[in-house]
Amino acid sequence: MSFGEKTVLGKDELFRILKSISEGCEIIGPVMEDGKPYFRPVEGVEDVAWDFDTTVNGIKEFFFPRRSVLYEQTNDGIRPFDPETDKKRIVLFSRPCDARALTITDRLFMGENQDRVYGALRANTVVVGLSCEKAGPHCFCLSVGGSPFGTEGMDVSITAVGDDEYVLDMVTDRGKAFFGNRGRKADSKRLQEFETLKKRAEESVERTMRIPKDLPSAFESDYWKEVSAACLKCGVCTYLCPTCHCFDIVDEGFYRVRCWDTCSFDTFSRMASGEDPRKDKYMRYRQRVYHKFSYYKENFGVYGCVGCGRCTKHCPVKTDIVEIVSSVDEKGMP
């Protein structure tokens, strides 16, 4: 089997393979909790859902944990905490958007001054992706460079092709090493079917975000005050976002801890002196939009967004970033 070639497997066989390769690994996969899908550590492959809507959380928290201890201050000095690098982990059935988000946060955490925790967790984890047959009502991945059949950030991509069969695509060497040669070579009929399904999945993405060419020009517009008026300044959008990566460093007793933080919060940019360059709600909302669609692009070459739509779906007051960003050209230019 040559690299990049797709193979086909039956569901039972795929299940057996997943079971055998995840032996001894920590498994992370989608599970239902109180009627909603979440990515969680699971006991075994049999606990993982094969058919699920966009999960509430992404897989971000398994690489950039909500709380990670950096080190402990002891009488003998500083004792750094080692992320368990020798433990192997496997993420099952990451959706293409979540996997792609890793390639976006990689640019920040894996670049200059590589982040030790993130780096270790990235290194010990194999990401097995599952293509989306159909987009959800909030999805807009195509607008930001993703696709329901995308493979970026995955080591192995799995796609259901009907008749309880799955197409496997070894995306990286690591994925290949992990999976080995499995399944039979996909024949032209299967490949054609794959392409049809891909097209159908892409067509099912109903939402489009039009990202303005010149966002900086709208910076001082009153538009931001209008669109952020209903915002509650909570962290739902940013904490569920697979690419939001802002954090705080705090001391909890003698532990130094890195934890999630968000530009929505009052304390995010407030200094001890009380000065706050982003003291008003609209400034913080604008910061979030600009960070994703202007600054990140400028600094790292990609948008800080994968179009999963979680921020819109879970916003307690349904603030719709797609509409807000798309309307900048029309309503937001001074």
């Binding site: 920040l108 955490f109 200059e112 001054n113 982040d115 900086p216 910076f219 990566h245 802002c246 954090f247 705080d248 460093i249 933080d261 530009c263 995010f268 940019s269 407030r270 200094m271 000065e275 706050d276 360059p277 910061q287 600009y290 960070h291 202007s294 600054y295 400028e298 600094n299």
Partner: peptide, 19 residues
Amino acid sequence: LEMKMKCGIGKCGRCNIGP
């Protein structure tokens, strides 16, 4: 300039002025 900073290495996301 003074801004609230945490990481000092351009990752924690709070001290930006524009990009």
